[in-house]
Design a protein around this nucleic acid. Structure first.
Length: 297
DNA sequence: CGTGTTTGACCGGCGC
DNA sequence: GCGCCGGTCAAACACG
C-alpha cells in the first residue's frame, strides 16, 4: 500500500495570507502585479487539482485492490453457509467482517475500529467459518444519542447492553418486516468517534425491502467499499434502502465519478471545518476586497 | 388499547 | 467450578 501512504499525506494547505501581506506592501501595485498574483494563484490551484486527481486515482486503485481481496476471502468462507443462525450465540462474529469507510472520517478499518477486542477474538477464531455478517458505519451528529439507523427496513429493538470494550450502549434489533426474517443488527457508537454509528448486520433478508423511505433524501451519501456502505457527513444516519440489498461479496455500486465527486465534497467539508483554513480564507478575501477598493480609487 | 421501547433478569459460552 | 460477559427474554412502561 505504498500508494496510499504517498497520497494520504498530500499537503493541500493553502498559504492564502501571502497575498494579503504582499498587497499591503504594494498598495500602489500595478495591474500587472495583480495579474502575476492571479497567475500564481491559478498555478497553485492547478497544482492542487493535479494532486487531487492523483489522490483520487490512488484511492481508486486501493479500492479496487480491497474489493479484490474481499471477494477472494469471501469466496472461501461464504456460500457454504446453509445452516440458519443459532438462536443464542454466533461466536465467530467478526472474522469475515469487512468494513465501509466514511469519507472525511478516519475510519481506517474494522481492525482499528474494535481494537483489542477484535485482536482477542481473532486469536481463537481465525479458522472458524461464519454466517453472512456485514458492518456499516453511519455518520451522525455526536449529540444524537439515539441508536436508530434508518436503512429502509423496519427493525424492532429487543435489547440494549453496555459492553466492556465500548462505553456506549449497544442496541440489538430484529427485522420486523417479516416474521420469518431472522436478520439481526447491532448498533453501537464507535469508540474512536462518537459521531459514528457502527451497525453490524447478521443474516440475510428473505423478503424485499418494505418501502423506499428516505429515498428522496438527497443528503444521503455513501461511499461503499467491498459491499458495505456508509453515509457522508451530515446525512443524519439516514441510509439509502438500496444499500441493504448488498452483500459482502457484491462490488461497489457507486460509479467512479460519483466517488470522486463525493471525495471532493468530503475534502471541501473538511477544509471548511478547519478554523485555520477559514481564517486564512477570510483574510485573503478581505485583503482582495481591500486591494480592489484601493485600486479603484 | 395496540404497538413499540426500555431495562433488569436470565441464559449460555468461554476463560481461568 | 466459578465468574465474567455478550446476547436474549419478557414484564413494565410510554405513546399515539
Amino acid at each position: 500500500m505504498d500508494q496510499s501512504s504517498s497520497s494520504s499525506f498530500v499537503d493541500t494547505s493553502l498559504d492564502l495570507t501571502i497575498g494579503v501581506t504582499r498587497m499591503r506592501v504594494k498598495e500602489d501595485s500595478t495591474t500587472s502585479a495583480l495579474v502575476d498574483e492571479l497567475n500564481r494563484v491559478s498555478a497553485e490551484n492547478k497544482k492542487l487539482s493535479e494532486m487531487l486527481t492523483l489522490m483520487c486515482e490512488n484511492y481508486n486503485v486501493l479500492r479496487k485492490q480491497l474489493m479484490e481481496y474481499v471477494n477472494k476471502s469471501n469466496n472461501m468462507t461464504e456460500r457454504d453457509q446453509t445452516s440458519p443462525p443459532k438462536k443464542r450465540k454466533s461466536p465467530a462474529r467478526d472474522d469475515a467482517v469487512s468494513s465501509a469507510v466514511i469519507g472525511g472520517v478516519s475510519e481506517s478499518s474494522s481492525t482499528d475500529q474494535d481494537g483489542q477486542y477484535l485482536c482477542k477474538k481473532k486469536q481463537r477464531e481465525e479458522t472458524v467459518v461464519k454466517e453472512n455478517v456485514s458492518r456499516v458505519y453511519y455518520k451522525t451528529e455526536a449529540s444524537d444519542t439515539t441508536l436508530v439507523v434508518k436503512d429502509g427496513y423496519q427493525w424492532r429493538k429487543y435489547g440494549q447492553k453496555v459492553t466492556r470494550d465500548n462505553p456506549s450502549p449497544r442496541a440489538y434489533f430484529k427485522c420486523a418486516c417479516a416474521p420469518s426474517c431472522s436478520v439481526k443488527k447491532k448498533v453501537q457508537r464507535s469508540v474512536e468517534d462518537q459521531s459514528v454509528l457502527v451497525a453490524t448486520y447478521e443474516g440475510e433478508h428473505n423478503h424485499p425491502m418494505p418501502s423506499k423511505i428516505d429515498s428522496n433524501n438527497g443528503l444521503n451519501r455513501y461511499i461503499s467499499l467491498g459491499g458495505h456502505t456508509a453515509p457522508a457527513k451530515g446525512s443524519s444516519s439516514l441510509a439509502e434502502p438500496v444499500t441493504e440489498s448488498k452483500k459482502v461479496t457484491s462490488p461497489s455500486r457507486m460509479d467512479i465519478p460519483e466517488v470522486q465527486k463525493l471525495l471532493v465534497e468530503q475534502m471541501a467539508c473538511s477544509l471548511t471545518k478547519d478554523p485555520n483554513f477559514t481564517a486564512a480564507l477570510a483574510a485573503a478575501v478581505t485583503g482582495r476586497l481591500y486591494q480592489q477598493n484601493q485600486t479603484e480609487k
